[in-house]
Design a binder for these strands. Sequence first.
RNA 1: GGCCGGUUGGCAGAAUGGUUAUGCAGAGGACUGCAAAUCCUUUGAUAUCGGUUCAAUUCCGGUACCGGCCUCCA
Length: 475
Amino acid sequence: MSLKLHNTYSHKIEELVPSNPDGVVRMYCCGPTVYNYAHIGNLRTYIFEDVLRRTILRNGFKLTHVMNVTDVGHLTSDADEGDDKMLLAAEREKKSVLDIARKYEDTFFKHTAALNIMRPDIVCRATDHVQDMIKFVEKLEEKGYAYFSNGNVYFDTAKFPAYGMLSGQNRKDLRHGARVEEDTNKRNPSDFVLWFTSSKFKDQILQWDSKWGRGYPGWHIECSTMSMKYLGEHLDIHCGGVDHIAVHHENEIAQSEAYLGHKWCKMWLHGEFLQMKNDVKMSKSKGNFITLDTLIEKGYSPLHYRYLTLTSHYRSPLIFSYENLDAAATAYNNLKAKYVEFKQVGEVSVSDDDLKLYQAYLDEFNSHLDMDLHTPQAMALLWKVVKDKNLPASLKVKFMDEADTVFALDLAKVEENKAMDAPVIDDAIKALVEERKAARVAKDWKKSDEIRDKLLAQGIVLKDLPNNEVEISIK
RNA sequence: GGCCGGUUGGCAGAAUGGUUAUGCAGAGGACUGCAAAUCCUUUGAUAUCGGUUCAAUUCCGGUACCGGCCUCCA
């Protein structure tokens, strides 16, 4: 058994082999910038990373998983048009920058927990590591990769010939000022800021002293600094969204390998976007996004959304619409109902052939996950198992439990909240039910249906069982 | 302008050089007084134009359209 993953750097599927002698897989994932709520597109990427994490563990590897929280405002860009995001958020909400950051950080982890996303082993905030970043930049400067120009420290991409390898973009093809005003302090268009002391924008609230003057770090430096601090010089896996490939991850590679003097990260994995149907891209900066709370308010469970994301491959775009979410919610509810049904059957004797069949299914399931996290095929297989008449219910339950170690859909968890907000079935309702029973005995179908409709209007569903028994449930 | 990725049934979404998963929806049937739920069965798709091939949805090329990146974004 081996775990194979698609490496953006090589464009190939490669086997995961830990590069450190202790055999521990070292994984770093780009975390949230906490100036606003994470939207469901952001969350898709974290679900993908969680599936990756769970699959690594399922393969028996030891893992150290690190994620950053970007709580220092960064405009970073070398010729930025925008204001600092954190500062804007603070103004918008009349709070201090750090209060804002903590608030959104808390919400982020509340949302990821609701989606059954395991918390990384180490979560690190940028603001706690600024001194480390300063040292990092100093060393880059000593090694001749950085230059000081008009108040800012820049990384000189001309000194790093491999720049652009990840995204396949040539340094020279990058368009000067394609979308942004050109920064004339830079030597090359692809150069990026490591440390700011001067900005044409408002004074930053969060600033630190450095040998170049009081200022703040460029955005890219935090990921290199913190990943090395916690994971050392040889990283196995670095994850993020596809939008990070071209600039952020390219810059991370440049500054990290320049700093270390050797190859840094082995595998790069990137999650594709969630696309809105008939709509423009969801983005924090445009403010047009759907959060997990939006879905909850509409009556969906966070796990309905998790299910939806599992039906597509992480490297394919997924189209979001409420129609699709409804389909996922129905499928998910049906799956859970199956679990309950199989569980009720209880233990029955299982033959060797049954066990063989079970094992064959399980092997196939693992092989789908181990082939670049192919959750859609694994999910299709789960349904096949659920519907297989030749497999005893107890083994179906066992299979579903196994699948849930990666899917994390709480298939075994019994819903209790439904009973909480259920209307009370009072005496008046009971009386109507009895009245209807009598009507049915008398074959007075008109009256019977009237009573059923009346109760349905109150959200009470009647289901006729044999022997004139009635099951009363809540819509 | 450069660079990535994509176009599969009603909606999503896999796979594949010859037989096109899975879920949701639809249809028919069983059950029911009728329903609901459930179960069984089932219709239906590979953007477009060329090329290679015995055979292309799959490989190659052109076109159109879509998404993303080149500024912080998952």
